[in-house]
């Protein structure tokens, strides 16, 4: 399998401290405590969701192994941050997985839900736009109206950072 050195560098540059991924010794404590591994993987199978494999492939620069696999390999993660806590090497696994997910999106892949939420945020500056029925309910309950954000300002920021181009 080809080693992609540029990809390997990107993984390690993603955050301050991301280079500690090198210290992973494949103990599997992350996978042993991962709730999604628990419901998608039988003992010793190689299918399903496995944070340990993702870390191994990322640190070795096996980009194709990560992105050619079923999307579950990346998007199965429910971001519970348990792996970050149990890793004896203090690797912030979820930040590495954020990088993998961002790369997957850049390739136009990833779950519909993620695109739908990003679109809602771009269009209304809220993941859940305000709706007349809920506004009425707020009023009935004696709640003030939600303070409306500056949608144009948020759109400007997102456009300048190039996030709008990733929307579907």
């Amino acid at each position: 399998m080809a080693i992609d050195f540029e990809f390997r560098k990107q993984v390690m540059d993603h955050h301050i401290g991301s280079e500690v991924i090198k210290y992973c010794y494949q103990c599997s404590r992350c996978a042993d405590n991962c709730p999604v591994t628990a419901v998608t993987t039988d003992f010793y199978t190689t299918t399903g969701y496995n944070p340990r494999s993702n870390i191994l492939n990322a640190l070795l620069g096996y980009k194709d192994a990560i992105f050619a696999a079923d999307e579950l390999a990346i998007w199965g993660c429910t971001v519970c941050d348990t792996c970050d806590e149990v890793c004896p090497q203090n690797i912030e696994l979820t930040e590495v997985f954020t990088f993998l997910k961002n790369q997957s999106i850049a390739q136009g892949k990833g779950p519909d839900f993620i695109y739908a939420q990003a679109k809602a945020v771009f269009d209304s500056a809220k993941a859940i736009p305000s709706q007349p029925a809920i506004e009425r309910r707020r009023q009935q309950m004696g709640l003030p109206a939600v303070a409306a954000p500056d949608v144009n300002e948020v759109q400007t920021l997102l456009k300048n950072i190039g996030a709008d181009k990733k929307l579907k």
Partner: peptide, 12 residues
């Protein structure tokens, strides 16, 4: 959303 937009684009 730290599970949604963060996964979409960390800079966004």
């Amino acid at each position: 959303d730290p599970t949604g937009v963060k996964s979409f684009d960390n800079d966004a």
